[in-house]
Design a protein around this nucleic acid. Structure first.
Length: 507
RNA sequence: GGCCCGUUCGUCUAGGGGUUAGGACGUUAGAUUUUCAUUCUAGAAACAGGGGUUCGAUUCCCCUACGGGCUACCA
């Protein structure tokens, strides 16, 4: 059993955008698989046709691609255990459901949803289980003849598992340790729906078996239905092949309580989905981490730290390091509240530590998207190096770098105009002359000339430094002014002084 | 309501029978930077409560409280 090849799966249902909790589940699956030389498969659980959303499947694949978590097998890439879309495996499930019925572990139930709704209203704490199933319309209560007639006539029905009245079922969760349940308290879950599609409960067991899944990671919200799955593995005769379970702690809302949801992002002003998600039905766009300006490396890094650490205090990890150091034993049990401030810190760290070469394509995209023309790569690289320390998000490069490519359109005029004097006008006019005599146009030389002139004019350095910055940048931010001037070059610097002077001295 | 899971600074967490309970984010105060950011230094800040077990519990056990999840022909 221990020689069994590691195979894990991420099994989302294509119902909308991919939540950060989902990406974390992918990550942990992926890390575990890669660490053990195993396979990572993507399986689409589209058994609920009413919830199917067009485009969601491609979106999920795109998210994984952006993150660099590429499945070894998937509906798109195919694989030995295809198909990987449950809707395309529909015929498979019925056979196993029927097998369970014939073995007495499951039964046909003919109650309509309406009847059950009524029952739930009428009976407090109603459960379709050993306490109530004897009073309902199913193959356990109806005469054999009638069941056969109903079936023969194509009467809509479901197949439900028959939970034992009084058994204790337990297992060893890789994260939580020993967990146990009383079967009498769990209801007879539907296995096969009236439309012939399996529910998650049946499909997950059948497919995990057929696809030889060795370890199953999923959110903690699945823990209560684990006994159903355990029983199914047993009844189907596959117990020896059952994957090891790992129920991941949930990602919670930063404020208040409960699972983090898409709505929280909108409410609190941060993304929850990996990438932008456009809902055609509601015409609603939900912003993603990618579009907000996160690096995929940072996104993965911060997700990994939500519920896992390597015990050393290290917080910045590359994907390769995560693969190397990942271990299930170090996953925490408690849910984690999502902290967007810390998320931004991770991104800032990744931007700060990335070589300009790695950032150039993304930065160029940010700038061009805003209408800034970027054509000289060597220049772009220098600019990135000089401003990346002040960017938290990739989109910050617009504000931090665009003035290197175009003259500021607006000036922080309030910071200069009230204190403007003719002496200053005079100073800057002469500065142009001094600067044009600088041979190299290097920061140190420019600074020396600037200082000498200020002294000559009897101006305090502080009185002209800030105006000079605003002339070149437009606002009170950016690297050292003389570095900026040098990067801009003589022509552009003089031009900007002129242009700003006009604005500063206008009535 | 029932069942299941959980509980160390505001947040993410390390630790684990005897510690000044450590780190990070955020925050506060300084230093550097004649802008902003980075960087650096310092500070405030936590073992939910009650019972056991023990010479000694934050650590082990039980209870309570609190939090979360599930309770669909959704996943």
């Amino acid at each position: 059993m221990s020689e069994k090849k590691v195979r894990v799966r991420f099994a989302p249902s294509p119902t909308g955008g991919l939540h950060l909790g989902g990406v974390r589940t992918v990550l942990f699956n992926y890390l575990f698989a890669k660490k053990h030389g195993g396979d990572f498969v993507l399986r689409i659980e589209d058994t609920d046709q009413s919830r199917y959303v067009e485009g969601a499947e491609k979106y999920i694949a795109d998210c994984l691609a952006w993150c660099g978590l590429i499945p070894d097998e998937s509906p798109m890439a195919g694989g030995q255990y295809a198909p990987y879309r449950q809707s395309e495996r529909k015929v498979i499930y019925r056979e196993y459901a029927e097998r369970l019925v014939s073995q007495g572990h499951a039964y046909y139930a003919f109650d309509t949803p309406e009847e059950l709704d009524a029952k739930r209203k009428e009976v407090p704490n109603f459960q379709y289980g050993h306490t109530h199933r004897s009073g309902l319309r199913n193959s356990l209560t109806l005469p054999l003849q009638e069941v056969e007639t109903l079936l023969h006539n194509g009467t809509p029905h479901v197949i439900r598992i028959k939970m034992p009245d009084d058994e204790t079922i337990s297992f060893n969760d890789m994260i939580r340790g020993y967990v146990s349940f009383e079967t009498g308290l769990v209801d007879d879950k539907v296995l096969l729906k009236a439309d012939g599609m399996p529910t998650y409960h049946l499909a997950v067991v059948v497919d995990d078996y057929l696809m030889k899944i060795s370890h199953a990671f999923r959110g903690e919200e699945w823990l209560p239905s684990a006994p159903v799955h355990l029983l199914l593995w047993e009844y189907l005769g596959w117990k020896a092949d059952m994957p090891k379970w790992a129920h991941l702690p949930l990602i919670l809302k930063p404020d208040g309580h409960g699972k983090l949801s898409k709505r929280d992002g909108a409410r609190l002003g941060f993304p929850v989905y990996a990438m932008n998600w456009y809902d055609a039905k509601t015409e609603e766009l939900t912003q993603g981490f990618r579009e907000l300006g996160f690096l995929p490396e940072a996104f993965l890094n911060l997700l990994a730290m939500l519920g896992w650490n390597d015990g050393t205090g290290q917080e910045i990890f590359t994907l390769d390091e995560l693969i190397e150091k990942f271990s299930i034993e170090r996953i925490s049990k408690a849910g984690a509240k999502f902290d967007f401030e810390k998320a931004k810190w991770y991104n800032a760290e990744w931007i700060k530590n990335a070589p300009a070469e790695k950032l150039k394509v993304k930065v160029a995209e940010v700038l061009t998207a805003k209408g800034v023309t970027v054509n000289k790569e060597a220049y772009l690289l220098k600019i990135i190096d000089v401003v990346k320390d002040r960017c938290v998000l990739l989109t910050d490069f617009y504000q931090q770098a665009s003035y290197f490519f175009q003259c500021p359109k607006e000036y922080d005029i309030n910071s200069v105009k009230p204190k403007w004097t003719d002496v200053k006008t005079d100073f800057f006019n002469q500065l142009k002359d001094t600067f044009s005599h600088s041979d190299a146009f290097e920061p140190a030389d420019l600074e020396a000339r600037f200082k000498a002139l200020a002294e000559e004019k009897g101006l305090k350095l502080g009185d002209v430094m800030l105006p000079f910055r605003i002339m070149l940048v437009g606002g009170k931010f950016g690297p050292h002014v003389f570095d900026i001037a040098a990067l801009l070059g003589e022509g552009e610097t003089l031009k900007r002084i002129d242009k700003a002077l006009e604005a500063f001295t206008a009535q």
